[in-house]
């Protein structure tokens, strides 16, 4: 399988969008070479604004442009755009229901060497509760690019987060199309369900393959639309497989796993396990070493599946 960093396709999708839609504007906060909004800046210099190292003003300016009818994408690293500018996103973008797409790159521990100060493991937890804000996590670069077009077509505020590194193209050669509020079963199975997002989707598919050898049929759901959440696909999975494991490159507190639990406890309570960062900060290291340390691996996921099956 080919590996691509989602941000590479994000940047390219912005350029494609810019070509067909003169109403699209892009902002960044001095990280355009990393977030890949620099591609748009080069193609459409008059529709790109660099806020400098000032995320709060970046979001505010994005809101102002959107207030004048523009479709605005604003990017930076997940830590800073979601953390530093949280209240700006909450009050000026979401409360005002402006057409701003906050697109965060470098989420999670796979930021790697830069260490804990740069590894956002809380962003989903702080973005999910904001009313009117849609929250997305693409499983791969292909889905990231699709989300750019869906966000542009759908009026309203969004938060999208993606990881830094290249990851396998889960949807390469498929006719998959992301739909807001829809989450697909990407692997059928009846014994247990893994609900994954971001880079954990590929790991979930590989864990499912391994477990197949032990005659455990794993269903895999790509929960890329964290909000709005696809309740139906989750409830069906709970009822039909009787056990759920969530997997995310995020804290286990308040993230995608919590979003799934909120649906499951109300509608179809079944044993659940959550794989994620266990309430600690990140640190410097190679991305793979950090994934290993936090058990965000095929082995780590299989261990959680075994735990949940023992409780079933």
């Amino acid at each position: 399988m080919t590996s691509v960093a989602p941000r590479d396709y994000y940047g390219k999708a912005l350029v494609e969008l810019g070509k067909v839609d003169p109403n699209v504007f892009v902002l960044d906060a001095d990280l355009s070479s990393s977030t890949k909004t620099g591609l748009f800046a080069k193609a459409f210099p008059n529709r790109f604004f660099n806020a400098g190292i000032a995320e709060q003003n970046c979001i505010g300016m994005a809101a102002g442009l959107a207030n004048m009818g523009k479709t605005v994408f604003a990017s930076s690293f997940a830590m800073f755009i979601s953390g530093r500018a949280w209240e700006q996103i909450r009050n000026t973008v979401a409360y005002t229901k402006l057409n701003v797409k906050v697109v965060a790159t470098h989420a999670g521990v796979t930021v790697g060497e830069d260490g804990g100060t740069h590894q956002a493991i809380e962003d989903l937890a702080i973005m999910r509760p904001i009313p009117s804000l849609n929250v997305l996590v693409p499983a791969d670069a292909i889905e990231a690019a699709q989300m750019v077009h869906v966000m542009a077509a759908e009026y309203g505020p969004f938060y999208l987060r993606m990881s830094r590194g290249a990851s396998p193209l889960v949807f390469e050669g498929t006719d998959y199309q992301f739909k807001l509020g829809k989450s697909e079963v990407i692997r059928q199975g009846g014994d247990v369900t893994i609900v994954a997002c971001g880079i954990m989707v590929d790991i979930a598919l590989r864990a499912a393959q391994t477990l197949q050898k032990q005659k455990i049929n794993v269903r895999v759901i790509n929960l890329s639309s964290i909000k709005p959440i696809d309740e139906a696909v989750l409830i069906a999975a709970a009822r039909e497989t009787g056990a759920i494991v969530t997997a995310e490159e995020h804290s286990v507190i308040g993230g995608m796993g919590s979003a799934v639990a909120e649906v499951i406890v109300k509608n179809a309570p079944v044993p659940m396990e959550m794989l994620g960062v266990e309430g600690v900060f990140g640190e410097s290291g190679k991305p793979d070493e950090l994934l290993e340390k936090h058990h965000l691996t095929v082995e780590g996921l299989i261990a959680k599946v075994n735990l949940v099956l023992a409780r079933k």
């Binding site: 979001i59 102002g64 442009l65 959107a66 207030n67 004048m68 700006q88 000026t92």
Partner: peptide
Amino acid sequence: SVMVGMAL
């Protein structure tokens, strides 16, 4: 900040 965006 919003005014700056509007003026832009």
